[in-house]
């Protein structure tokens, strides 16, 4: 029913495409039997496309299903329904064995650069691991590991150190080196800089950009930080409660956002510029994210939507309550999932 995140840049081939992805997690009750008492609708009917050499930013607040989308797209957790195509392969029906071989092409970089590195492996071994897994280490793997370490800004002499001996930014570089080792086509980055101080974060972002330019990688960049996403992404998809509510080219999304949630998100991010920050028009939302186990009917954003609360008539409101808005272009230049979408300038 929903459209995808729109056409990818002309003339390029689609590398990854997800169609109507759904992922439900069972909620188990307490007690001995641990019966399933409900379902968390972590991802509901999400579709997107990612072209070769492109960066798609996936943004949204905590718990909106970004990480789950990323993992389902990599077939790391099985989708409840929906399809994922990688190149010309359909991932959801690929056997575990074929999937393991395919992982060479698609890699994941984690948010917590500490938890995702085995504390008992020295760094050179960590970076060599992907090569070993795919039987590529014996052919000059040692030298490749050293090159990789240099590439991401680590000293090869430090290869025998353990992850805990490195600072956060360096650990994230280790994670990136590991992901790069197999020369993948796709990197899925799950909040790769969220745990880092700004001065360190900038270095990692630059590294990612340079690697992309050099190696022609495609990035699915997951983040809750709109500023970071604007900096790095070509196209952006905004998620709310398991759904993509707005998507489009980065420039358009920031210059003419059309979904009330995107408005609120952009308004909520403080600009590091005192004069502009204090002079800004603000759209604020009230309340907190509803539980994904029991999402509101109709438009999922309606419980917090400032437009719903302040601008709509009762009959318009009932449309929001009863009818789920589709993700489609309503004359704003890019797909938006709001019955009353309206482009605004907020920056």
């Amino acid at each position: 029913m929903s459209t995808t995140t729109g056409p990818t840049a002309a003339g390029t081939r689609t590398l990854l495409s997800a169609r109507n992805l759904v992922k439900h997690f069972p909620v188990r009750g307490g007690g001995l039997l641990r019966r399933t008492v409900g379902e968390v609708h972590a991802v509901c009917d999400v579709s997107f496309e990612l072209a070769e050499g492109e960066t798609l930013g996936l943004v949204g607040e905590s718990g909106c299903g970004k990480s789950t989308t990323a993992r389902v797209a990599l077939n790391l957790i099985p989708a409840t329904s929906g399809e994922v195509r990688f190149g010309d392969r359909e991932l959801t029906s690929t056997s575990a064995k074929d999937m393991r071989a395919l992982r060479r092409e698609m890699q994941l970089v984690f948010q917590d650069p500490y938890a995702s590195l085995d504390p008992r492996m020295p760094v050179s071994e960590l970076i060599a691991e992907p090569l070993r897994i795919h039987g590529l280490y014996d052919a000059g793997g040692r030298q490749q590991v050293r090159d990789l370490m240099k590439t991401v800004g680590l000293k090869p002499e430090h290869g025998n150190r353990y992850p805990h001996e490195f600072s956060g930014g360096q650990r994230q570089r280790i994670g990136i080196a590991r992901a790069l080792a197999l020369r993948p086509k796709l990197l899925v980055l799950d909040e790769p800089v969220s745990a880092l101080d700004v001065s360190i974060q900038a270095g990692v972002l630059n590294l990612l950009q340079e690697l992309q330019a050099e190696l022609g990688l495609s990035y699915l960049f997951v983040s809750h930080d709109l500023s970071v996403v604007r900096h790095i992404a070509d196209r952006i998809a905004v998620m709310y409660l398991g759904k993509i509510v707005e998507t489009g080219p980065a420039e358009q999304l920031f210059n003419a956002p059309a979904h009330p949630y995107t408005h609120a998100l952009i308004s909520a991010i403080p600009l590091p510029d005192p004069r502009r920050e204090r002079a800004r028009e603000r759209i604020t939302v009230v309340g907190d994210l509803p539980s994904p186990a029991n999402p509101p009917s109709g438009c999922r954003f309606r419980t917090r939507c400032p437009k719903f609360a302040a601008e709509l008539s009762a009959s318009q409101q009932s449309r929001c309550t009863d009818e789920e808005p589709e993700l489609s272009d309503r004359g704003t230049g890019h797909p938006v999932a709001c019955h009353f979408a309206e482009a605004r300038s907020l920056l």
């Binding site: 790391l76 395919l102 085995d118 992907p130 897994i133 590991r178």
Partner: peptide
């Protein structure tokens, strides 16, 4: 890191 290893194949 277990998930990471799995993601590596």
């Amino acid at each position: 890191y277990i998930e990471a290893a799995r993601a590596l194949g």
